[in-house]
Amino acid sequence: MYDAPSLEKNVDQKATKIAAKDVQVYYGDTHAIKDVSVDLLANTVTAFIGPSGCGKSTFLRCLNRMNDTIDICRVQGDIRLDGEDIYDKRVDPVQLRAKVGMVFQKPNPFPKSIYDNVAYGPRIHGLARGKSELDEIVESALRRAALWGEVKDRLDAPGTGLSGGQQQRLCIARAVATAPEVLLMDEPCSALDPIATAQVEELIDELRENFSVVIVTHSMQQAARVSQKTAFFHLGNLVEYGDTTQIFTNPIDPRTESYITGRIG
C-alpha cells in the first residue's frame, strides 16, 4: 500500500535542528496544542500527519512565530533553533522567519513579475551585492524549484499568470531564494493536481540536501513517499513520532494504527 521511500533512511547520526519541549498553544480559551515535545533533525524531511483540527498546522506556525500575527494566540514552552530559544525576547521574529522559511497551502505569489517574486526575499535582506548577483540567486532558486526551464524566457511576466503547480513551485523558489535553514510547508500540494504534486514532491526530496524540511500533509501516501521522520498528531497531542517506515509499518500507539488504516480521522 505504501511506496517505500526511495532514499536510504540513515537519519540517526544527524544533528537536531529544532528542539521543541512542552509546547502549549492557546487560541483564546481553546487549548490547541498540549505538551508537544519533538526534535526535528537537520537535512531530514519530517512529515506531520493527523486528522483536520489536530493542531499540526498550528504547531508548524509556532516554529517560525507566524502565530505572532494572530492576536488571540498564546504560545508557551520552549522551542530552540540550533540551541537558541526562538521565543526569547532578544530574538527578532523577522530575522527568525528569514531563517525558517514557509510555503503555504494555497499558492500565494505576489502580484509582481516572476523575477520580482523570487528576488523579494534577497532584496529585503540585502543578500545580493549587485544586479548580477541577484540574477544568479534568482536563477539558482528557480532551478532548485525545477521552474527555470519553464519561465526563463518570461521572467517579467506576472507570477499570478502561472498555472497552480507552477505558482506553488514559484512560492518554493521564493522561499529558497531567501537562503533559509529550515523550510516549513503547510499542505503544499493540497491545491495541486497529481502531476504538479509529483513535481513538488521530487523537489522536496532534493531540498533535503540543504535544508530541514517540515511538511504538513493530509495524504499518508505523500508522507510515506517524501519523509524520513513522521509525527502523528491527534486532538492537540503528539501521539507518536518516529522513522516513517516504522510509523507506517509498525506503529506503537493504537491511535496511530487506527489513523493510518483509516479507522479514525
Binding site: M66, T69, N108, P111, K112, G121, I124, A175
Partner: peptide, 27 residues
C-alpha cells in the same frame, strides 16, 4: 487584499511596513 499575500511576505522575513509597502499597497 488576501491575507495569504501578507502571510507570504511575513513568512519570508519581511517586516510589517515592508509587507505593506511592497506587497499590500502594490496589490
Amino acid at each position: 487584499v488576501p491575507q495569504s499575500m501578507r502571510d507570504g511576505s511575513l513568512g519570508l522575513g519581511a517586516t510589517h511596513s515592508e509587507t505593506i509597502r511592497q506587497v499590500v499597497i502594490p496589490a
